[in-house]
Write a protein that binds this DNA or RNA. Sequence first.
RNA 1: CGGGGCGUAGCGCAGUCCGGUUAGCGCACCUGCUUUGGGAGCAGGGGGUCGGAGGUUCAAAUCCUCUCGCCCCGACCA
Length: 573
Amino acid sequence: MRWTDFLLPTLKETPAEAETQSHKLMLRAGLIRKLSSGIYNMLPLGLRVTQKVASIVREEMNRIGGLEILMPILSPAELWEESGRWGIYGKELMRVRDRHGRFFALGPTHEEIVTDIIRGEVRSYRQLPLTLYQIQTKFRDEVRPRFGVVRAREFLMKDAYSFHRDEASLAETYDKMYEAYTRIFTRCGLRFGPVEADSGAIGGDVTHEFMVFAETGESRVFACDCGYAATEDTAECVIDVPEGSQGARGLEKVETPAMKTVEEVTAFLKKEPRQLIKTIVYNVEGEYVAVLIRGDREINEVKLAKVLGTPNIGMATAEDIEKVTGGPLGFSGPVGLKDVRIIADRTVTGACNMVTGANEADVHYVNVTLGRDFEVTGFHDLVLVEAGDICIRCGKPLATWRGIEVGQIFKLGTKYSKIMKATFLDEEGKEHPFVMGCYCIGITRTVAAAIEQHNDKDGISWPISIAPFEVHVLPTNVTVRELKDTAEAIYNGLMAEGIQVLLDDRDERPGNKFKDADLVGTPIRVTVGEKSLKEGKVEIRMRKSGEVTKIEKGDAIARIAEVVREEKKKLEA
RNA sequence: CGGGGCGUAGCGCAGUCCGGUUAGCGCACCUGCUUUGGGAGCAGGGGGUCGGAGGUUCAAAUCCUCUCGCCCCGACCA
């Protein structure tokens, strides 16, 4: 491609709206332009990268036997009502109405639609397993679109769905997907990690998220050298449980004037936060539940929601707390608490001689002991893991890092097939619901994640597998005949080798061209300038290392083609 | 939805508090000349409903009311 025939609008200054490196660089290097909040135009350069990522994904899906299909973006409300998600998906589901007043959803994901296809077309166990996938625009009315294409309201996603006769078959496909995902992100040149995760609105029990390591990532992950890795929502850790209740001292009330926080109370009583039990009252769909956790730890609300069996939980208001406990906010405790379900984190197991609120203003209890002074209906793992906590697999401390979630794989089971009555017949003619899995990858998000990992002060530095061009040919001055002709010859020669080349044939000063070349980030740059050409040479410069080698003009095409092959080889999975 | 901030040329901004020339600067763009190895110089030029609507005033980018959009922080997720 000749630059002068292309639309590649680079920006010297960063638009004010951009916060993260990937967003800034996608705008500056002319990959995208914003149309509206969370909605982007994909310019030619951006599309080239997106399509490269998509084709790597397609190759790997096909390799494990996936069949590509294309489902419509618009889907009738009835299908969503059947699964129950028309109601529970919430405001994130974009809805439109046709001229007859019928409602449609703009697909955020397609479980209902594939399930509908399969229940119509597949009758026999002989047709299983079956994996269908598509690469398509998805819509989610995000509460807060952010970071450009990373959290957009309209984005490109690969979504695959597998159908099985039993869990064993699902497990097999799940493992193949896991490996395919590993190959995909490796081929894209990303540093990433699969982590155990929460299944959220899509449902199912077993699920892994694929995280690309990035400082600006929205997700926090805990990981251990032994291979254990999980998101903040699901991470578990070993809790040091104190000894039993021998040595319990007598329960006592103490004055704690205006001291509401753990820090205030423990400092006043000359105790450690871990000697106190926090009591947090939650409003669970109109009912109140008191949740106990040791004073030095925080509650993980995702775990709590799972234990309570509903995502609709929130902290009770100050007024509700007075009503429920009889005391003001900040002085709640389990002792004498009536008519409220009390559950506790494992840190409360064996609680002895602890401090708690007394459910009256400015008073706390000391020497509170489990079993003697209060009871709980159950112990659960509700703790929010922190860096340094102990790994449940190997006993070493957990490390923490941030990541961008680029894909997730789920074992759905029969959640959708049961409710939508999608069944097949086994050898004995017995009817069973399909066992399902679903597997997605954010294609446009992967592009952003790649930039987030591969950039420096000068711009993007693409892994060659997803670079919009493999080689950037840069004549320093196109008004000089010899420079122009040499550059053109190399350009044509490389194209004949099947290499994707961008020729900067603009009549610009060299400085501008160098700056733009670094910004756009093509991995290999060939500089055709007067200095070297006098000696009959051209220069190869690697974008990532800055390393320059001079080569004979006559060897250029063969040598460059070789460098391209070497670079590609490094990213093979 | 709650909290904070911003809308002035394609991009980045000043001017707004304290109303008063023809609304300004840098970059980008067009023409010409010079220049050509890391974001050139000179000269000339084009481009604005000052987000929108209403109001106050002799006079509004500037003051008041309403409204729309965008960004950031929190609850969501590929």
